[in-house]
Simulated scan of single mutants.
Amino acid sequence: ILIPASIAPYKLQLIDIVEEKIDRRIPLDWPYHFVLKNAHCRRVIPLEETLRMIRKLKNGEHHKVLRMERQILDEYVRYEDIIDRVVLRGSPYTRLPHSIMKADAFWFHARAIRDPSERSEMCRKAIDFHAELLERAETSMEADEVALLTLVQKVTRILAESANFDPQLVVKAALIVDRAEKRLEQKSDGEAARRIKNIRYNLDCVNEAARKHLV
């Protein structure tokens, strides 16, 4: 990983330790995953902010934009490669964060891609990974649990923003929301209600895009 100078020395030591463990194929627990994720975010977020600023400039130089885009994409490819090389401990509390990191990496990577076909392909990977996570979460959580609704919200947002229509996933999301609303009739949970509202909005966007595509 390329480490920005802004990271504190003790965090650099942590990253070095994690990289050494990965190279030596030592199984990692979930805290090490967050060290990797934080290092990646500290690297890529400033690049993305700089790119947005350059794009806003009327005289923004095209070659600078292309160079920044390439650098950002390279960071995502590097991050995904590192995640793939991680050896996991057997605990589900380790496997779940790893799966979430991978799914999120594909999604944010997709948003950074300019080419429509490549972007669509990466979005499909993100959708598939999130769908798998949703399948696992649905079997172990009640429909109104915020953690499950957060995952549904993320999946439906990806579907809405990527214009990828997945009928089975849309139906699954809608059924989870229906069950969640039914459970909330018996209790009050503001956070769950907000998630449901966002999911409904995302589903409306997905269905509207699908209708336009059919016209």
Results as ranks from 00 to 15, higher is better:
residue 47 L to C: 10
residue 107 W to P: 02
residue 49 E to F: 10
residue 50 T to C: 11
residue 17 I to G: 12
residue 62 H to I: 15
residue 38 N to K: 13
residue 40 H to R: 12
residue 34 F to L: 11
residue 45 I to K: 13
residue 46 P to S: 09
residue 104 D to K: 06
residue 68 M to H: 09
residue 44 V to R: 00
residue 79 Y to I: 00
residue 23 D to K: 15
residue 129 F to P: 03
residue 109 H to K: 15
residue 124 R to N: 14
residue 113 I to N: 06
residue 35 V to Y: 03
residue 78 R to I: 04
residue 54 I to A: 10
residue 39 A to R: 09
residue 71 Q to W: 01
residue 102 K to V: 03
residue 68 M to K: 10
residue 112 A to I: 10
residue 61 E to G: 01
residue 47 L to M: 14
residue 133 L to V: 08
residue 122 M to R: 14
residue 62 H to S: 15
residue 106 F to V: 00
residue 60 G to Y: 02
residue 64 K to E: 12
residue 93 Y to N: 13
residue 59 N to W: 09
residue 76 Y to T: 00
residue 98 H to I: 09
residue 23 D to N: 13
residue 57 L to A: 12
residue 97 P to G: 09
residue 86 V to F: 02
residue 130 H to I: 07
residue 91 S to N: 15
residue 99 S to F: 15
residue 128 D to E: 07
residue 25 R to F: 05
residue 93 Y to S: 15
residue 38 N to P: 00
residue 21 K to N: 12
residue 43 R to V: 09
residue 113 I to K: 13
residue 41 C to W: 15
residue 86 V to Q: 04
residue 29 D to Q: 01
residue 134 L to A: 09
residue 17 I to R: 11
residue 116 P to Q: 04
residue 100 I to G: 05
residue 120 S to Q: 06
residue 95 R to A: 06
residue 62 H to Y: 11
residue 115 D to W: 15
residue 127 I to V: 13
residue 119 R to W: 08
residue 112 A to Q: 06
residue 103 A to M: 05
residue 70 R to H: 05
residue 101 M to P: 06
residue 34 F to M: 07
residue 108 F to P: 00
residue 112 A to N: 13
residue 132 E to N: 14
residue 58 K to F: 05
residue 39 A to P: 04
residue 22 I to Y: 03
residue 51 L to C: 07
residue 119 R to K: 15
residue 56 K to H: 08
residue 23 D to E: 14
residue 88 L to Q: 06
residue 128 D to M: 07
residue 20 E to A: 07
residue 80 E to W: 03
residue 81 D to L: 07
residue 51 L to E: 04
residue 110 A to G: 09
residue 48 E to I: 14
residue 70 R to W: 01
residue 73 L to R: 11
residue 26 I to K: 01
residue 107 W to K: 10
residue 89 R to Q: 06
residue 96 L to T: 10
residue 19 E to V: 10
residue 51 L to Q: 05
residue 129 F to I: 03
residue 58 K to Q: 12
residue 122 M to K: 14
